[in-house]
């Protein structure tokens, strides 16, 4: 709150005004030359803090140039960070693949998935490997963790087409890992899961049981992981169990796959 205005100035106020007038008259009376000296003195004393700040402050143009340069560096750094994040994800994926390739005894041929084509009967992949890489029809296709993905159905010179397990035309002879019971696995589009057929009512099957390839179809080698049972119920009319299997492969995130290189003993 400001001071209440006094009706009349006090002695101190008049004294201050008189001092100001006296200083003013003195400065006026000393003449131009002395006034210039006084100004220099004042600039060196009263204005010293001000000059100190102003002299140490970088010029405006320099600041603007520096800011533009910093903005550029920030933009470049942000782009670099984004690129590093993407590379980190890729590195993690490649490490997983490398680890799997080293663990597996059979030679594997990695192939980049160029396209995933959902067709009426199911899902097809376009791979960037073809005849010139030694691919052949029915060659098994595995995922990053060694799980079954599908098989090659068409081979061109530089690329090929593969059916995944999510294709109605692909059926696989499989075995329950725990009980060694054999059945036939095929895609069930209504349930969006794999349906395991041919397991008798007297078999003890539980959700969570692992399903692996049996090797009976002579296309896929034995004991390749296919998926996990998610539901089991008895179909009394058909005398078999109705079993649904969740595929082990993550088809929605498939970027690379591995082709099992021809095994002479299996093919013969």
């Amino acid at each position: 709150m400001f001071r209440k205005a006094a009706a009349y100035p006090g002695f101190g106020d008049w004294l201050a005004l008189a001092a100001a007038i006296a200083v003013s008259l003195l400065l006026y009376a000393i003449g131009k030359e002395h006034r210039a000296h006084a100004a220099v003195f004042l600039r060196g004393t009263l204005l010293y803090p001000y000059r100190l700040v102003m002299e140490n402050a970088p010029p405006r143009d320099e600041l603007q140039t520096e800011m533009a340069s910093l903005r550029y560096q920030l933009a470049t750094a942000n782009r670099e960070v984004a690129r590093c994040a993407s590379e980190r994800v890729e590195l993690r994926r490649l490490r997983t693949q490398l680890d799997y390739m080293e663990r597996r005894e059979e030679p594997l041929l990695p192939a980049r998935v160029l396209a995933v084509t959902p067709i009426r009967q199911g899902e097809q992949l376009t791979l960037e490997r073809g005849k010139q890489h030694g691919l052949y029809v029915d060659q098994p296709l595995l995922g990053v963790h060694g799980e079954l993905v599908g098989k090659v159905v068409q081979v061109k010179e530089r690329e090929s087409t593969a059916q995944t397990l999510r294709h109605e035309a692909l059926s696989v002879m499989v075995r329950l890992e725990r009980t060694r019971e054999v059945g036939l696995l095929r895609w069930s589009p209504l349930q969006r899961l794999l349906s395991l057929e041919g397991i008798g009512l007297d078999e003890t099957v539980f959700p969570g049981d692992t399903v692996v390839t049996s090797g009976h179809g002579r296309i896929f080698p034995v004991d390749i992981r296919v998926g996990e049972i998610v539901s089991v119920r008895d179909d009394s009319t058909a005398l078999v169990k109705v079993i649904l299997v969740e595929p082990a492969a993550d088809f929605d995130r498939l970027e690379e796959a591995f082709l099992l290189v021809p095994d002479s003993t299996l093919r013969e």
Partner: peptide
């Protein structure tokens, strides 16, 4: 302060 930057009118600004 202002007058020191414009010495010709140093006394005037003060007044």
């Amino acid at each position: 302060l202002r007058g020191s930057l414009e010495p010709e009118w140093l006394g005037l600004d003060v007044l």
